[in-house]
Design a protein around this nucleic acid. Structure first.
Lengths: 116, 116
DNA sequence: CACGTAGTTCGATCATGGTCAAACTTCGAC
DNA sequence: GTCGAAGTTTGACCATGATCGAACTACGTG
């Protein structure tokens, strides 16, 4: 049975209590996913999936978003045909204090040092 | 030509400027290696390789120490036939401020929640 | 309804990395 | 020198996960 007309497609998110450090690290060990998180932090606002600047195909990008979401790092929601992405900054900071900021800062440091 | 008698076996360590976030995350994404780091942080002193409580064979453990050392996370040195291990806490904190403490704290949080 | 855009699902491929046992090296002690 | 203890090296095995293209679904617009 198809969803009713006016209900937006729903996205499942883990409760922060179910998020483990293992999940988070597995998510952020991938450079592409770290780029996504960086761009999200840099933007300071929610971004649709298609507007990220990453060198992978759409299907691969979908995979990366799934991993980030299931790890509790991002929150996703539909707006029409586009899917928006937001960092779960506050929740993550309560679950693992200081971790996400340190990673984002380190990520910026890291990419800056390898930039031309 | 064999080393002179009185010189201890030497261990190569990367300069902190050569250590990347990618290296560090790849090192710490493995649960066994995180256990090693946790036990090292907990102990507050240098520990020999053989005294760690990890469920892997000696050859695998050697591999894990190599990864941690090459990622800049630990420093190793020989004392007789035993090899000692130390966290490069201060250097890491200068390179990636707040990262290692946050990870160690998160690691403790994480293992505590799954403990019996 | 037809079309285009945004994203997903599926299946296959392929590289990476954790694991072990066995043989080896290095050192201290006797 | 011989022995045992502490690590290392090597080679093989195997699970995981990143990747892609092709076919698919969902939504807004005309």
């Amino acid at each position: 049975m198809p969803r009713p007309r006016t209900a937006a497609r729903m996205v499942e998110h883990p409760a922060m209590t179910d998020v483990t450090l293992q999940h988070v690290l597995e998510a952020l060990v991938d450079p592409v996913r770290r780029t996504v998180v960086s761009q999200l932090a840099q933007a300071g606002q929610d971004i649709s999936c298609g507007t990220f600047d990453v060198p992978v195909s759409r299907s691969t990008l979908t995979h990366h978003f799934n991993v980030l979401r299931e790890a509790g790092v991002i929150r996703q929601y539909y707006v029409g045909t586009t899917k928006m992405n937001a960092l779960r900054t506050d929740e993550m900071n309560e679950r693992f204090p200081g971790l996400l900021p340190a990673l984002i800062a380190a990520s910026a440091e890291d990419t800056a040092s390898s930039a031309a």
